[in-house]
């Protein structure tokens, strides 16, 4: 294993070094896109009915009348110093939006990811293992339906059934107003804050609010994996080393679990990582449907207001998350699969 150490390290360094130009290009793209898109942020922020003189004055105050390259230099300079600026429409600090609303999104996507992995992996593995059985037919049908269903449709269906008809679960917000008022802020992630305080009533309320949006997003996202995992299991069960294990009299359970499932899941890790963007996209829709105060919901609102500063900041955060995820996944794959050597 010794000879692999340095090469893995070298790979890690190059991989990380590449992040810098990647992020730079991304920042530039976002900046340009927001400038090219039609609509004036200041007039949008003021409700679209402000007199031209007022718009002009405020534009000047915010520096939007300066040449684009000056704005660009200013923007980059700020970001390098970790300052994401202030929103135009409601003068909030973009940094705090990222922290506060980002925490809500993290909570939602984390639980959605768990639901997705449980649903996707379970249905995929069982379908692949019992290929062409009624279980498999059911699993595949579920996968296709879920894959084709828009998030908001599934979300509204869940709200209708579990919120309105059955009245089991809340259908919007991250917590009840009382919980929100009483809960102390430590991490901005409600779930964790409630645990830190040992506030079980609040935790119950928070979990109840989480169930519908996290399950909705998780099921839709999990649909992506079902087919992939199923095919991988079927293919892996045909591998020569599976037959060899059977020839050694290894019992079927070990053959399936130790040999087939493990090997079938390796490429899935990569797909989970690559589709983090998909998860974030789904989060925007889920948050809007469930009025979840996450960063995706904010992005949606600020985008409508043409709020350069807010949209820029949020998109940059999304991009950084996607980049970070791909790096983590690369290292995880290298760690699990001994053949992956760089």
């Amino acid at each position: 294993m010794n000879q692999t150490g340095p090469s893995l390290k070298r790979y890690a360094i190059t991989r990380l070094a590449l992040v810098v130009p990647m992020v730079f290009i991304l920042l530039t793209l976002v900046f340009l896109l927001m400038r090219v898109a039609p609509g004036n942020p200041v007039s949008a922020a003021l409700g679209g009915h402000a007199p031209p003189a007022v718009i002009k004055a405020i534009s000047h105050q915010l520096g939007y009348d300066k040449p684009v390259y000056v704005q660009y230099a200013h923007y980059l300079g700020q970001i390098i110093r970790g300052n994401f600026g202030t929103t135009i429409s409601d003068r909030r600090s973009v940094g705090s939006i990222i922290l506060v609303n980002g925490a809500a999104t993290l909570e939602l996507t984390f639980f959605a990811l768990i639901v997705a992995i449980v649903v996707g992996v379970l249905v995929g593995l069982v379908s692949g293992r019992f290929r062409d059985s009624p279980i498999d037919a059911g699993g595949r049908l579920f996968g296709i339906v879920v894959y084709a269903t828009p998030v908001f449709f599934l979300g509204m269906l869940a709200q209708l059934v579990f919120g309105i008809w059955l009245n089991w679960l809340p259908t919007s917000d991250q917590a009840s107003p009382i919980t929100e008022a009483l809960l102390q802020t430590h991490t901005n992630i409600f779930f964790i804050d409630a645990i830190i305080d040992g506030n079980w009533t609040a935790l119950k309320d928070i979990v109840e609010h989480l169930i519908l949006p996290a399950t909705t997003l998780g099921i839709v996202y999990g649909g992506v994996f079902i087919r992939l995992i199923r095919i991988n299991v079927i293919r892996t069960l045909k591998e020569d080393y599976i037959e060899a294990a059977r020839a050694r009299g290894i019992n079927e359970r070990s053959v399936v679990y130790r040999h087939a499932f493990r090997n079938a899941l390796v490429p899935v890790i990569t797909v989970v990582g690559l589709s983090i963007a998909l998860l974030l996209g789904g989060a925007i829709l889920t948050e809007t449907t469930f009025n979840w105060p996450g960063i995706g919901h904010e992005l949606y609102v600020y985008l409508q207001n043409r709020d350069y500063a807010a949209v820029q900041g949020i998109v940059v955060v999304f991009a950084l998350v996607v980049v970070a995820a791909s790096i983590v996944i690369d290292f995880a794959t290298a760690f699990i699969d001994p053949r992956v050597r760089y």
Binding site: Y241, A247, N263, P338
Partner: peptide
């Protein structure tokens, strides 16, 4: 003992 040795061992083990 199988004819082809290259693919008969599980690469992850």
């Amino acid at each position: 003992i199988f004819q082809e040795p290259m693919t008969r061992l599980n690469p992850l083990l």
